[in-house]
Amino acid sequence: MVSAMVNSIGLVFDIIGAMLIYFNSPISEGGSFLYSSDETARRIKKATKKNNLVKLGAGILLVGFIIQIISNWV
């Protein structure tokens, strides 16, 4: 029973991590655009925040997998 609960906790971590990665992955835009320096700074700030959330999601996903592996021995 404990093993199933630990495995479920790991699965929840995996789902949260995967959602963070999915919703914060960069969108492919075709073409080229010229932006003002203010717009460029805003876009860089937004991209940095999204990149940090993707890294967080990958870390949470890794923790979820580790928890699921541990559940095999609990």
Rank of each mutant, 00 (worst) to 15 (best):
L62C: 11
K50C: 04
F23L: 07
S71I: 04
I21Q: 09
G17E: 01
F33Y: 12
I70Y: 02
L61S: 05
V6S: 01
G10S: 02
I16H: 00
G10I: 02
G57I: 05
K50Q: 09
L61F: 06
I27L: 12
V63R: 00
E39H: 08
I44K: 13
K55Q: 08
F65D: 13
S32I: 12
E29S: 06
F65I: 14
N24Y: 02
G57C: 01
N52W: 11
S37E: 09
D38M: 15
R43E: 09
S8V: 05
N72R: 09
L61P: 07
N52C: 12
I9F: 15
E29Q: 10
D14Y: 07
K45H: 08
G30C: 12
Y35D: 13
S36R: 07
M5F: 11
R43V: 07
S37M: 13
M19A: 09
I9C: 07
G10L: 02
K55A: 11
S25H: 00
A58P: 01
I15N: 05
S3K: 14
G57E: 04
A18G: 03
G59V: 07
S71Q: 02
S8L: 15
T48W: 06
V54F: 00
A4R: 09
G59F: 03
V63T: 07
V12D: 04
L20T: 04
D14S: 10
V6I: 05
M19G: 14
D14F: 14
A58L: 05
N72L: 10
I21D: 02
I70S: 00
I21G: 04
A47Q: 07
K45S: 10
V12N: 12
T48A: 15
K45I: 11
S32K: 11
L61D: 12
A47D: 09
L62G: 05
L61A: 06
V54C: 03
I69F: 08
T48L: 05
Q68M: 14
S36A: 06
I9V: 10
V6Q: 00
K45E: 11
I15Y: 07
L34R: 09
S25M: 03
I60W: 00
E39R: 08
F23G: 02
G59E: 02
G30N: 15
G59T: 08
V54M: 04
Y35M: 14
I70A: 04
Y22K: 10
F33N: 11
S28L: 15
V2P: 01
G10C: 00
W73E: 08
V54E: 00
M5D: 10
S28Y: 13
I16D: 01
K50G: 11
K49V: 13
L11P: 04
W73G: 14
L56S: 08
L62H: 07
V12G: 09
I9M: 14
E39G: 07
A41G: 03
D14P: 09
S3R: 10
S37A: 12
K46V: 10
A4H: 03
I9Y: 04
L34H: 13
V74H: 00
F33C: 12
G30V: 11
G57Y: 00
F13R: 06
F33R: 12
A4I: 13
I60P: 00
V12S: 15
I66Q: 03
V12L: 08
I21Y: 05
